[in-house]
Design a protein around this nucleic acid. Structure first.
Lengths: 222, 222
DNA sequence: GACTCTATCTCGGTA
DNA sequence: TACCGAGGTAGAGTC
């Protein structure tokens, strides 16, 4: 990690064209070679950056960072105010919990939590417009397309409607039920779901974990 | 700007739950109060962060950053390796060029680039669901709703479909044609467009600039 | 404040 | 590699 504080001017040409007038900024060069130009505000996003892999060529008065894709970042350095290097070593990386994937996993193992008698056909069931999160069958053997979101918004209902449309083209599945499942469902999404004949269901993440899984463990390790 | 290099452990609880095992990282605190935890790699995005406004309380062995929305970032500091503060002063901000707005501008001045005989009614034509990028009329006088993207994906087709639905409610405009225009259009977006009766058109930014504008200049400055 | 939409989106998974 | 979807999306603009 290399941290340089400098009065600089920055120009980027690549996916767009951007210019930064002269000011004091932080130049951050990470071990993987990526370069970021930070102002002292405006949240965590840098003003300008160049991802790895790239080539950084340093001159006394400027840095030229170029990538194979034809992007170029030119940092004109008017004055260096501070410079620092540090070796961090490897980072063990971020562990996340509570995202959509976990919710999908929980429901795939407990389809009866959605409705009595529900059973799983397949996770990520493919259609020509993308995969349905879960394809299930209800107690009467009717196909049910399930779309899972952390937060249920209008986009998700649109997505599920598209999938149902495609699945209904398959005579072995039609007519397909559609079930929109989320930890919380926005009022607008609920309204749209209703008008589309899509069932909307809120589930609680912690409650779900209490419900018996289809793969019970002898020793429930915590 | 405050830059601290420290061996630390990080826990975030809020929109999700995340944990970072002990390692050396950069802690960046900006003048607006936002806090970011950077590893020495992985592009410009921090591993963890907390946006302003928030409250940072420092103890000898840990930082507690909390927000009004109930998010909490706990940074346990095992060892401080370096600390630095610097006052940057104001930043004049970024100037951008070549984003979607420019593509829209180019097409608004050259609607015939979309189709022979096309003419512009209005940019950002309002509907109750948001503005349509361009409303045009074709050579037969039929209304055409145009949605412009840099990259055409499935969401954009949905967006345009919603607008057309609204515009079709206006008897002076109906039936409205829908035209999805982008520098590149994803296969799935094309599939959806087709099934929705939406025309899909790829345009080249540089070619467009070559086409005569409706506001020709006497002196074409470069 | 709520809603909408863009983004050099980033990032991860998958065919 | 390209494509596709999620994101603690963030951030800007509008109403």
């Amino acid at each position: 990690m290399r941290l340089v504080i400098a009065r600089c001017t920055v120009d980027y040409q690549g996916r767009l064209t951007a210019h930064l007038p002269e000011a004091v900024r932080l130049l951050m060069v990470k071990a993987d070679g990526c370069v970021a130009v930070h102002a002292d505000g405006g949240a965590f996003k840098p003003l300008n950056w160049m991802n790895a892999p790239n080539t950084l060529v340093e001159y006394p008065d400027r840095w030229e960072v170029t990538s194979a894709k034809g992007e170029a970042l030119l940092i004109t350095i008017h004055e260096v105010l501070s410079e620092q290097r540090y070796d961090f070593g490897d980072d063990p990386g971020l562990q996340k919990d509570g995202v959509e994937a976990h919710l999908q996993e929980l429901l795939a193992e407990r389809p009866w939590a959605l409705e009595d008698g529900m059973s799983l056909v397949r996770r990520e069931y493919p259609t020509s417009l993308g995969p349905v999160d879960l394809l299930c069958t209800d107690s009467r053997g009717r196909a049910v397309a399930v779309e899972i979101k952390r937060r249920g918004e209008i986009d998700g209902v649109e997505q599920l409607t598209r999938y149902r449309e495609r699945l209904d083209m398959d005579s072995r599945l039609a007519p397909v039920r559609a079930m929109f499942v989320a930890q919380s469902i926005a009022p607008q999404a609920r309204t749209l779901a209703e008008s589309r004949g899509v069932e909307a269901l809120e589930v609680d993440y912690d409650d779900l974990r209490q419900i018996e899984s289809s793969r019970p463990r002898l020793f429930d390790l915590h």
